[in-house]
């Protein structure tokens, strides 16, 4: 089960996730974020992963899919907080080379 909360803050689409980002979670994430991007026209995404307890390649794929969509339009994805086991998966997939991880939402928003 994955809970996805989206809202706008300083013109940025904030996405807060809670639960497991597997094949089911990936589908919920994709639907919620793509709908919010279309509805708001947001350029950047702040992705708060603090509540994510599990991720596999399905979950990584959907994060990478949003990354491609956003960067193609000149936007950025700011990732906030990864649990150690999640960070290890990101690292193994090479995602830490293209994404910067922030400790909290304030730090990420300050960066933009």
């Amino acid at each position: 089960m994955l809970k996805v909360v989206t809202f706008m803050k300083q013109g940025i689409l904030v996405v807060r996730l809670e639960g497991e980002l597997d094949v089911c979670g990936a589908n919920e994430f994709r639907t919620a974020v793509d709908e919010a991007l279309t509805a708001t026209g947001a350029k950047h995404i702040l992705l708060n992963m603090q509540g994510v307890s599990f991720i596999d390649s399905s979950g990584l794929g959907v994060v990478l899919g949003r990354y491609k969509r956003i960067t193609q339009l000149g936007g950025k994805i700011l990732v906030v907080y990864l649990e150690p086991q999640i960070k290890r998966i990101f690292e193994l997939a090479g995602l830490l080379k293209i994404l910067t991880i922030y400790q909290n939402e304030e730090q990420a928003l300050d960066f933009l």
Partner: peptide, 15 residues
């Protein structure tokens, strides 16, 4: 076989 998947499934199983 799907562009949104990274093809990392077997890599993770292996690692």
């Amino acid at each position: 076989s799907d562009p949104e998947r990274m093809g990392l499934g077997f890599v993770f199983m292996d690692s």
